[in-house]
Simulated assay, not measured.
Amino acid sequence: MIVEIILQMRLYALYFLDKRILSLMVVSFIVSSASTALVLGLMYNGGISTQIETPFCLTELPDYSYAVWIPRLAFDTFLCILALIRGFQLAKDEGDSFDSSTLPSGKHLMKVLIRDSIGSYLIMFAVYLTFLTIWAKNGNLFETCFNISVGFESIVGTRTILRIRKVTNNGGPDVSASMVNDILK
């Protein structure tokens, strides 16, 4: 969910703080989150629990449990489409001068935001689609899939923020690389 909020903030900035885009994204986010919550609620009511004290410890999930990943896939696809549209608009406006080596820092930041939005989507789409497939075949990996998806979301969100910081530091040193070098010393 954090990565989706970061993606929305980036897209809002890419569309120059257009309130219509913000409204569209917020409504879509609420619908997606509500759909996911509905499926999770139905799963917990339809699942079989083995522990009386902990009703959230499920050992067998309903057949439709894989549907929890569908709203996330749909929302991320929507955000990627918005990023692609904005990227094509910028490329069309700039023509051949959209080369990152000749761009002023503001345009370079926009290019990085678009690239990262699409890259984040591809990573998270692959993760969510993999888990949807796993759950459709074997729903017993419920907790494992959620934990791994949260880890991937954290990594993608952190990398995005670090790349934005690098660009806004006027091409200064890559923060993540310097952090890794400090740790290895």
Rank of each mutant, 00 (worst) to 15 (best):
A177I: 05
E143K: 09
T36R: 14
T144N: 14
I70W: 07
S149K: 08
K19Q: 13
E153V: 02
F152E: 00
L7R: 00
D174M: 01
I114A: 02
S33F: 14
S49K: 10
L11A: 03
S65R: 04
L38S: 12
V175Y: 05
V150C: 07
T59G: 11
Y12V: 03
D96T: 12
T160F: 06
S117Y: 04
A13L: 12
H108P: 04
F56G: 09
T160I: 01
E153C: 04
L109G: 00
Y44N: 08
F125N: 05
T168A: 06
S33V: 14
C145A: 09
R159S: 07
L82A: 03
F125Q: 08
V180F: 13
L79C: 06
I134P: 01
S28E: 07
Q8N: 14
C57L: 15
S117C: 07
V27L: 07
V175E: 05
S28H: 07
I52G: 08
K111Q: 12
I70G: 04
A91R: 09
E143F: 15
C57R: 15
M179D: 15
I52Q: 14
V27G: 03
T144E: 15
L22H: 07
T158C: 04
F131S: 05
Y15P: 00
L17V: 08
Y12P: 02
K185A: 11
G46T: 07
L58E: 00
A34E: 11
M110Q: 14
S33T: 14
P71Q: 03
L22W: 11
C145G: 09
K185D: 08
T130C: 09
T102Y: 12
S33M: 14
F152D: 00
D174P: 00
M9H: 14
I161V: 10
L24A: 06
D93Q: 12
N170C: 06
D116G: 01
L7G: 00
D182G: 10
V27I: 09
S23T: 12
I6C: 02
G171I: 01
D18T: 01
G139K: 04
S105N: 15
G172A: 04
I118V: 06
N140K: 14
S178H: 07
L40C: 08
G151V: 07
T133S: 08
F78S: 02
M110Y: 12
T130H: 10
I148Q: 04
N169R: 15
A126E: 08
L90I: 10
M124S: 05
R72E: 13
T160R: 04
G172C: 01
F146I: 13
S100G: 08
L103Y: 02
V68S: 00
G151K: 10
F142S: 02
Y12R: 06
K185E: 10
L82H: 03
S120E: 03
F125D: 06
I134V: 11
L42V: 05
P71I: 03
L82V: 01
F142D: 02
R159Y: 11
K111N: 11
I148E: 00
V150W: 12
N138R: 08
I123D: 05
M1N: 10
L40F: 12
F88W: 15
S178N: 10
T168F: 06
I2V: 15
V31W: 08
T102M: 11
Q8S: 14
G46W: 10
P173W: 01
Y64G: 00
G41K: 03
L22Q: 06
F78Q: 01
